[in-house]
Simulated assay, not measured.
Amino acid sequence: MIMIKAVIIDDEPAMQQVNSQLLSEYFPAIKLAGIADCIEEGAKLILKESPDLVLLDIELKDGTGFQLLHKLKPYDFKVVFITGFHSFAIKAIKFSALDYIVKPVNETEFQQAIQRAVELIEKKENSDAQLNVLMTSLQNENKSKKLVLRTAESLHVVDVADIYYCKSDNSYTTFYFRDNEKILVSKSLKDYENLLSDYGFYRAHQSYLVNLNHIKKVDKSDGGFIIMKNKKEVPVSMRQMKKLISLLSQL
């Protein structure tokens, strides 16, 4: 493993200690270059040390971790967020395909999040696109939404409105777009159902999540199926048909 430099930005001394101990125990090759407890000191620390990895608390005593990030473009480090609350901020982080750890810190989740960050640092993957999507999500909660899809080879930044439907394949999900373009990611459909439910997506079938805005026709014959605007057919389960018709009538 290459030498990786990390900093911790958290305003709770107990959390500072937990995170530094876990880093030392599970990732001895990561050098902890410093700890800060607020936006101003955190920004100074990052600019001084140029870390590869930032463990960043969302709630700081003088603001938020997001406000700190605003001061630091472009981003030449990986961020793992630490948060003690579930909110729209978590959703924004998920849209950006960034990692986060929920307090109280679970050791296994900590290891997994840091290990993923280490692998991306070793690949020299840039975080700019993801953090820009995050910032836009936070500023424009109700405007056009972008979603980061991570494949084995690359990061795709897509407009949520351009997704026609998603298909489940066990722990994988395939996203379908216009002209049969598709992207396969290693996350479950359930993850995306929760994320996209506020943006016109409906679980029409156990294996399909559809964008209601791209439905051309619903055919009730043969058990029922949807014809999308890209001419693809998507099955509808019997028990979802009535709700689907109701949702479409409200568009």
Rank of each mutant, 00 (worst) to 15 (best):
L22C: 07
S20Q: 03
I101L: 13
K220C: 12
T136H: 12
K143E: 15
V80W: 01
E122S: 15
Q21A: 15
Y75A: 08
A161V: 07
T136Y: 09
N19Y: 05
Y199S: 14
L120I: 07
E141S: 04
D219Q: 08
D179S: 08
L22R: 06
K71F: 04
G223K: 06
D191N: 15
Y199R: 12
V118M: 11
V79K: 00
S249Y: 08
N132D: 14
K242R: 10
L120G: 13
P51V: 01
H86R: 11
N126K: 04
S249K: 05
Y192W: 00
I58G: 08
Q139V: 02
I114F: 13
N213W: 00
L195M: 11
Q250E: 09
I35V: 14
K78C: 03
T174W: 07
S20G: 09
Y100G: 03
E193Y: 15
K167R: 13
V236Y: 00
A89S: 10
K182Q: 11
D11C: 02
Q111S: 02
N180S: 12
A43F: 03
T83W: 12
Y192R: 01
Y176N: 08
D222I: 03
K94S: 09
L56D: 14
I4Q: 06
G34D: 02
P51R: 05
Q250L: 04
I245R: 15
E233R: 10
V54P: 07
R150V: 10
F177T: 06
V218K: 14
L248K: 00
K78L: 07
L209R: 06
A92L: 03
G223V: 04
K232P: 02
F88T: 03
T83D: 14
V7F: 05
V18D: 14
V80K: 01
E107Q: 02
A29Q: 15
N106R: 13
N126G: 01
M1I: 14
K44C: 02
I30P: 07
L149I: 01
